[in-house]
Structures are given as C-alpha cells and as structure tokens.
C-alpha cells in the first residue's frame, strides 16, 4: 500500500510546492521572459532603477492596503486619500506654509480619513465596502475642493526633492518605500497589535472570545492605512511636482491586486507584506517590460488582468486540493 502511494505523494508534494510558489514563479518567469527578450536592457541598472521608481508609491499604498486586508477588511479609499493628502500638502505650500507644516497637515488629513473609516467600520458596524466606498467618494470631492479642480504646482524645490531627488543614484521614494515596507512588516510580525490583526483576520469571533480588543484593533488598522496612504500621496505630489484631485487614482485597484497576489504566496492565504511586495513587483515588471517591448497600452491592460487571474487561480487550486 505505502510503496505504491509513495511516488504519488512525492509528485503531489512537488505539485503543491509549484502551486504554492505560483506567484513567485510567475514573477521569476516574467523577469526571465523580459530579460530573454531584451537582455541588453531589462536588467540594466537604469531600467531596474526605473522599475523601482515607478512602483515605489504603489508599494507604499499597497502596504497600507495590506494592513487592512490582514484584518480581513479592505479599503477602497486609499487612492483617494493619497490624492487628497498630496493636494492638501500642495495647497498649503502654495499658500505659503512651510514644508514641514504642509506635510504634517497632509499626514493629519490622511490619519483623520483613516480614523473615520475605522469608526464607521469598527464601531458603527458598517461593512468595509460601504464605508470606504462612501469615504472614497467624499474624499475625492474634498480633493476637488482643495485643488479647485485644477492641478496645483510650483512647490518649493526642497519638497519636490523628496520625490525627485536621488541618494546614491537611486530615487528617494524607493528608500521611502523600503523603509515603510520594513516598518509595516515589523509591526505586523513583532507587535501585539500586528498579531491581533492577524488573529482577527483569521477569525473575528474566536479573537473576541479570547479577549482581543477587536474594535480598537480594526480602528487602528484603518487609521494606519489612512496615514500610510497619505505618505504615498505626498510623495506622489513631490515626485510629479504637482497635485491634482485624481492623480494616483489607479493605485487603489493596483494595491488590492498586489495584496491579492501576495495572499497566494503563503500557506495560510492571508495578506502579508512580503507577498504584497511580490505582487507590486509583478505589476511593476509587467508594465515596464511590456513598455520596453513596445506593447500597445490596451493590450498591456488586458495582459495585466490575465496575469492576476492566472496567479490567483493557481493558488486557488492549492487551497481547493485537500
């Protein structure tokens, strides 16, 4: 009995590993594919730097989304909150406020949006979908009010430096993304609040009955997401040297996609920061690689969707087989 089963088991194990690693394998395959297509360009310092620069702000916002999704919710307002924060910072500076003040106020705005989301969801028991959809709508409205529908620009050079400056020939937002990701990772991994988030995301009732303060933890998760989104938005404004009410609105969908891709990376199927970064990597490499190959933008969009479906389906097979 056991002898006939053994090879089959081994085969299953390899298959499962491949499935589990599906998303990582997908990223590696993408890199290998683009490298094979354009070996002279794809992995050059300049291009890798380009990719990192292009995904740095998405990485920050996806980090915010990860926190909320670890708790088992999601936040549709991250993109809008980031735009609003960028707009608020810009409007402050144009109004003559010093940079530190502009940034502080913008961060505060992000914090408040997150807090409102948290109160609505954790204390007033709205579903995350309804609450964040509603705040997203209002926040976009606020952003239009702040920008008066125009694009704000002419920020102080020191501010723009945050988004456009370089250290060791690598753009500063890349460092920001790195530091924020490490912080979020550490908070999720090592702090009691991070572990509470994991517990709640696994099973709210068990957590509550085990004495986890579920409401406070969810409130905190949304607040953190708002704050981190604001950081992303401020950096985007600095990176572009301008702020409009809708810039970076694509970050919401991409952040959710990145977290979903990341959830496929680990066994428990939970949102996790390492996985999210792999998801961000896939999205960034796809876009850059297809641009380099000169693929039509519409086709790019189709292909991006298909890759996401493939990766998530692969890991879905993993959970289904039991």
């Amino acid at each position: 009995m056991t002898t006939t089963n053994a090879p089959a088991r081994a085969g299953q194990a390899i298959g499962r590993m491949l499935l589990q690693g599906g998303t990582v394998v997908a990223l590696l395959l993408l890199i290998i594919f683009f490298f094979a297509m354009r070996p002279d360009i794809f992995l050059t310092f300049v291009n890798v730097k380009n990719i990192l620069y292009q995904v740095s702000i998405l990485a920050i916002i996806a980090g915010a989304q990860t926190v909320v999704m670890v708790v088992g919710d999601f936040d549709l307002s991250v993109g809008a909150t980031s735009s609003l924060a960028g707009a608020v910072a810009g409007a402050q500076m144009i109004g003559g406020a010093p940079i530190w003040q502009a940034i502080s106020v913008a961060l505060l705005v992000g914090l408040i949006v997150g807090l409102v989301n948290g109160v609505l969801i954790a204390y007033l028991n709205l579903t995350a979908f309804v609450a964040t959809l509603a705040t997203m709508t209002s926040v976009v409205g606020f952003a239009f009010l702040v920008t008066e529908g125009t694009t704000l620009f002419n920020f102080p050079a020191e501010f723009n430096e945050l988004g456009q400056g370089k250290f060791l020939n690598i753009p500063i937002p890349v460092y920001f993304a790195l530091v924020i990701s490490v912080i979020i990772w550490a908070v999720l991994k090592f702090t009691t609040i991070g572990r509470s988030w994991h517990a709640i995301g696994g099973n709210v009732e068990v957590s509550r009955l085990s004495g986890v303060n579920v409401r406070r933890a969810r409130l905190l998760a949304f607040t953190v997401a708002g704050l981190v989104s604001a950081i992303g938005g401020i950096l985007l404004a600095a990176r572009l040297g301008s702020a409009s009410a809708v810039q970076g609105s694509d970050n919401m969908m991409f952040s959710v996609a990145a977290v979903f891709l990341g959830m496929t990376v680990i066994k428990s199927g939970m949102a996790n920061l390492g996985g999210t970064m792999i998801g961000v990597g896939i999205i960034g490499v796809m876009s850059n690689g297809l641009n380099i190959l000169g693929v039509n933008a519409y086709i790019q969009q189709v292909v991006t969707g298909i890759i996401i479906i493939l990766a998530v389906t692969l890991s879905g097979l993993k959970t289904r087989e039991r």
Binding site: R38, T44, N47, Q54, S242, Q247, N291, A297
Partner: peptide, 17 residues
Amino acid sequence: ATGRTEALALVADYLAA
C-alpha cells in the same frame, strides 16, 4: 486622471530600451 504618471513611465521605459 493618471495621464501624467502614465506618460512619465512610457517615456522613461522607452528611453531605457
């Protein structure tokens, strides 16, 4: 809405290639 970032990436990637 994202015209500026899209154009930025398009040109940056083209120049890299």
